[in-house]
């Protein structure tokens, strides 16, 4: 039986180093520019006072980079904090 699948990404908040590479990669994918504001499906805020990192992932605006082997955010995450998740619809 052929199963229908859907895809998403999952960002490991504990592992994330806050470097913003995924944000930049995503802004390039959507707009062909580098920016940290309003161009990306991912937003990362690093609190330097307590070392915490907050991540906002806007799944609605993420198209999983269909022309890439794997989404660009994953390609540029040096510490493999982003996972490509495949699941049944």
């Amino acid at each position: 039986m052929k199963r229908e699948l859907e895809y998403t990404i999952k960002i490991n908040q504990e592992r994330c180093t806050g470097c913003q590479a995924c944000v930049l990669a995503c802004s390039y994918h959507h707009s062909n520019v580098f920016s940290l504001t309003n161009k990306s499906s991912i937003e990362i805020f690093r609190n330097n006072q307590n070392g915490e990192i907050n991540i906002n992932y806007n799944q609605a605006s993420c198209d999983m980079c269909p022309d890439e082997e794997v989404p660009l955010c994953i390609q540029f995450c040096a510490i493999e904090a982003i996972q490509f998740i495949r699941m049944r619809k």
Partner: peptide
């Protein structure tokens, strides 16, 4: 060590956050 940290767009991850 609380977490590993990296500078802007940096694959090296040389920094750490301590508590």
């Amino acid at each position: 060590e609380q977490r590993k940290l990296a500078d802007f767009a940096c694959p090296i991850t040389c920094s750490r956050f301590y508590h």
